[in-house]
Structures are given as structure tokens and as C-alpha cells.
């Protein structure tokens, strides 16, 4: 009971400080025109189709982002953001080497609310386009088999960004942000009918059918951004 009371009190104090801060400092410099980020995205992929390519459910990807504030209305702002995430997993499927490369491109609007000038919360729902390249070393056929596909979906997430550093002088004053977000990334399933590249391996090879792969799942992304 006392803990819950303390938490509520803390939030009220923070809000009041934020309101005072808003009066004390203009918001616009903290609503970056352009923001570039680099970070790490970790997804949990629980689909069975992921099993041949990874001994655990994580998919770690390097994440590059680019955003630009389009509209500003006091504490609210609307930005256009996009991310390119790339990650790979390697494993063995019953002794046969497997690899999975995943590129994911997301782009769309992001709504932001500045609680404090150096702290904003955001939500976004970004259409996603992913390209997966799964490969299997086929020891019997003596060839590498592939399944390469595009899939489509959406990343829905919420997060917060904190301005860790702001340059006080100079014509261009970069600001460094630390951003964390969590959400759910949905992607449609793709076939894992593994075929060798044309001309490779035996004649008329039938595909090795490993089912389907869906990279949908919850994810976290932590990144550092520089904004202007």
C-alpha cells in the first residue's frame, strides 16, 4: 500500500516538474528535424519453422534507423521513421549446417509526446518488409539448398527516448538520444521448401520441405541516436 502511494507521488512530482520545465525551456530544439540511430533489436521467434536454423528462439539484429519530425503541436509531434534491421542465425539440423539471414525494412509514422524536453514517449505502427534467406547444406545431394522469400507485416511498438547529451555551442548542435522500445512484430509466413540454385546438384531435385517460417514475435530495440 505504501509502495503504491510512493509511486503515485513520484509520478505527480515528475509531471509537475515537467510542466515547470516546459515553461522554462522551449521544446522545439528537442524535437529533432532529423534523427539517425543505431542499435540492437532482439526478437523472440517461437515459430517451429525457426528451429532448424537456431538452437534458441532469439533473433538478434543490428538496427539502423532514420527519422524526421514532420509536425509539432506543443508536446506532441509526428515523425516519419524507418528502420533497417539485419540479423543472421546459424545452426545444424540433424547434423546438416543451416543458415538464416533476415533483412527487415520498416517505415511509417511515429507519434511522440514530450513529457520533459529531454524525454519523450512514442508509439508507432510501421509497415514491415522482410527478406529471408534460409540455407541448408544437403550432405546427400552435395549441394546447398535455399529458400529465399519476401514477407510483409507490421511492427507495432511503444517506447521512450531520453536526451543524454546536447551540444550547447556551434552552428549545428547535435543531441544524443538513448531510445528503448518494445512491441510486437508481425510477419507473414514463408515457405521453407529448400531448393538448390539452378544448375546446382542433381537433376530434378525435389525440395526439402521444412514447413513454413514466420518471424513474428515480440521484440525489444535499444538504440542510440543522434538528432539535429
Amino acid at each position: 500500500m505504501s509502495a503504491r502511494f510512493g509511486l503515485c507521488s513520484g509520478l505527480l512530482v515528475a509531471c509537475s516538474l515537467a510542466t515547470e520545465g516546459a515553461h522554462a525551456e522551449p521544446l522545439e530544439p528537442h524535437q529533432p528535424y532529423v534523427q539517425a540511430s543505431i542499435g540492437v533489436r532482439v526478437s523472440k521467434v517461437s515459430d517451429e519453422g525457426y528451429d532448424p536454423f537456431a538452437s534458441s528462439d532469439e533473433l538478434t539484429q543490428v538496427s539502423l534507423g532514420l527519422g524526421s519530425t514532420l509536425l509539432r503541436a506543443q508536446r506532441f509531434s509526428l515523425a516519419a521513421t524507418g528502420f533497417w534491421d539485419y540479423g543472421a542465425r546459424s545452426s545444424t539440423a540433424r547434423g546438416s549446417k543451416t543458415d538464416l539471414d533476415v533483412h527487415r525494412l520498416t517505415i511509417g509514422p511515429e507519434a511522440r509526446y514530450h513529457l520533459l524536453p529531454p524525454l519523450y514517449f512514442f508509439v508507432h505502427a510501421l509497415p514491415a518488409f522482410a527478406h529471408t534467406s534460409a540455407s541448408l547444406e544437403d550432405g546427400v545431394a552435395g549441394v546447398t539448398r535455399y529458400a529465399r522469400h519476401w514477407s510483409y507485416g507490421v511492427d507495432a511498438a511503444a517506447g521512450a527516448a531520453f536526451e543524454a547529451y546536447a551540444a550547447q555551442t556551434g552552428a549545428v548542435r547535435p543531441r544524443i538520444w538513448v531510445i528503448a522500445e518494445g512491441g510486437y512484430g508481425y510477419l507473414g509466413s514463408t515457405s521453407l521448401k529448400m531448393q538448390p540454385d539452378s544448375g546446382e546438384g542433381p537433376q530434378r531435385p525435389e525440395p526439402v520441405d521444412l514447413g513454413t517460417l514466420s518471424l513474428s514475435g515480440p521484440y525489444l530495440r535499444v538504440s542510440a541516436a543522434v538528432g539535429f
Partner: peptide, 20 residues
């Protein structure tokens, strides 16, 4: 950073059947 995020998800992560 990667370890931090990985650790956050690790609690909910699972493996694959040992058959693989």
C-alpha cells in the same frame, strides 16, 4: 547493448526440440 536487450528477452525465450 546487445547483451542488455538479449537479457531482457531471455527470461521468456525457449529452445528447440533436441531432435534437431
Amino acid at each position: 547493448l546487445a547483451w542488455l536487450v538479449w537479457g531482457a528477452l531471455a527470461l521468456g525465450c525457449g529452445g528447440r526440440p533436441s531432435s534437431w
